[in-house]
Structure formats: C-alpha cells, structure tokens
C-alpha cells in the first residue's frame, strides 16, 4: 500500500475528507506516522491481508462518492479476511492506537502488542474533536470554555 492509497482508504473508513487527514502542510506528519504502522514488523500484519486490502481498495476507490460507502461496506467491512485490518486503520485515526490483530481490541488478554503510536498520534486522535472535546491531557481552551456549548464537526 502507498501513502496515497492509505490516505484515500482512511478517508472512506473514517468519514473524514482526505484533505483533513493529510493537509497540504502537516508539520506533525500524522498520516506518515500512522501509515508507518502498516510496515512495522512487530505488528505482525499478514502480508496476504495487507495485499488483499490494497487490491480491494484499488478496485473500488474510483466508485462515485455517493455509492462508495456501499462498496466499502460490501467489499471491505463485510469481508472477514480484511475487515480487522481496516478496523485498525480506523483506530489509528480515531485514537492513535494500534491493536493486536489477533484479538478483539476490547479484550485485554496478554501478552499483546497493543500500543499508542506516539504522543502526537494520541493528541491528534479524531474521536475527541468528533464529540466537541479535546484529547484528555491536551487542551488549548481558555479558562471556563467548558460552560459553553461546543460546535461539533460537520458530517457530510
């Protein structure tokens, strides 16, 4: 998988525009950092799984936007051979976390290789902004901001 393929696939999986995930100028290099997890040997990603996800994505990525989610649903999400890896891409973006592919992410069986990718991957996790908040431990708010109703990001 290439970085571009990763970003376009990520956009389809997260519901965020590719330009939000990988802005023109990203000094924090978030997409690069997250993408690197796919080639990290210690993550034990079966090569066939990554290949299949790449191929499937390339076969549907040109689908016109209105029908793309349905294609992703059928070809990726419902395809048990690759859905777990696709889910991990969602977690990379929403949490900055990699979960051991060999178990359910909500299972704490150990040993496992669950890990936070980096402090920046954590503080850039999308889940926080989605709910109108900020990463726990990382706020740029002004004193008292919490008394006001936040604006949630637009979902298209």
């Amino acid at each position: 998988m290439t970085l571009d393929e990763f970003v376009s696939l990520s956009a389809a999986l997260t519901g965020y525009p590719a330009a939000t995930l990988k802005p023109q100028n990203d000094p924090q290099q978030i997409s690069e950092t997250l993408f690197a997890e796919l080639s990290l040997a210690s993550n034990n990603i079966p090569a066939a799984q990554l290949d299949e996800l790449t191929q499937v994505w390339n076969s549907i990525s040109a689908t016109p936007p209105p029908s793309l989610p349905a294609a992703v649903q059928v070809k990726i999400i419902e395809n048990l051979a690759i859905t777990r890896l696709a889910q991990n891409i969602i977690y990379l973006w929403f949490f900055g976390t990699w979960y051991d592919l060999a178990k359910n992410p909500n299972s704490f069986t150990s040993p496992n290789i669950d890990h936070v990718v980096s402090p920046l991957a954590y503080t850039n996790g999308l889940v926080w902004g989605e709910m109108g908040a900020h990463p726990m431990g990382y706020s740029v708010g002004e004193y008292g901001y919490w008394a006001n109703i936040p604006t949630l990001p637009q979902i298209n």
């Binding site: 389809a12 999986l13 997260t14 519901g15 965020y16 989610p69 992703v72 649903q73 999400i77 419902e78 048990l80 859905t83 777990r84 696709a86 889910q87 969602i90 977690y91 929403f94 949490f95 060999a102 178990k103 359910n104 992410p105 909500n106 299972s107 889940v127 989605e130 990001p153 979902i155 298209n156």
Partner: peptide, 26 residues
C-alpha cells in the same frame, strides 16, 4: 468506539466481526 467498530463476538474470541465505519460511525 470499539463496540461500534469491532463488536465482541458472542464467544468472546478474537474472530473478526462486522461493525460500522465512516459517516455512520461519526
């Protein structure tokens, strides 16, 4: 979020399951 994206299978195993994504997840 994990319950939404990777629901736990009834047998609590590590088997992959189908969850939500994209706009529905958001």
């Amino acid at each position: 979020v994990i319950d939404m994206v990777s629901p736990m299978p009834p047998d609590q195993s590590g088997a992959p399951t189908v969850g939500i994504f994209g706009t529905a997840l958001r």
